[in-house]
Amino acid sequence: MLTGVGFDLAPGKALILRGPNGSGKTTLLRTIAGLQPLLEGRVHCSEDAIAYAAHSDGLKASLTVAENLQFWAEVFGTSDIDVALTRFDLLTLADRPAHALSAGQKRRLGLARLMVTGRPIWVLDEPTVSLDQASVARFAENVKTHLAGGGMALLATHIDLGLEAPVLDVGVFKADPTSSIGGFDEEFL
């Protein structure tokens, strides 16, 4: 899909990916997160440092907000979910089952999961979908706090979060469809 993409991310920095729909942002992020194999090239970072969040939040409808978060905290070997709940303004909803949340609240819970992973690199695919303006601002604050603590973030988003971060347009890296590493069956031509 993409070719010639290259970037470095230093601790405390963020990078924003832009590009038209279907330009390969999601593929790039999934590959970095280790969900898809690379056709060519390398990713110089440990998969164990990455916390990945995509369009779906991985919430269980019949579990409460706190239970959902607690589960991911235990999987990632951390225990403190209160900070994440407070930061994403979910404390009052903690005992509500996830199916009773609005789309924006679900999204906030999905993003709160990032904090309980305790991992330094956040890889986020359209994190602000269905968030209202106040929530977007709150989310941007949380990303800034994360960066200030030495964390890193790689975001695919079209909303200006007010982050002092360089923007990478992936549209220009589109692979030449006639090259040998294209995503379809060149071998058959």
């Binding site: 997160a33 280790g34 969900l35 998969e47 164990d48 990455i50 916390a51 990945y52 969040a53 995509a54 369009h55 779906s56 939040d57 991985g58 919430l59 269980k60 991911w72 999987v75 990632f76 070997g77 999961r113 992973t117």
Partner: peptide, 16 residues
């Protein structure tokens, strides 16, 4: 179910 709601992706990127 885990596939539909995306938890399988997240589990695959978790330390488990």
């Amino acid at each position: 179910l885990d596939w539909e709601d995306g938890s399988l992706d997240l589990l695959a990127t978790s330390p488990l």
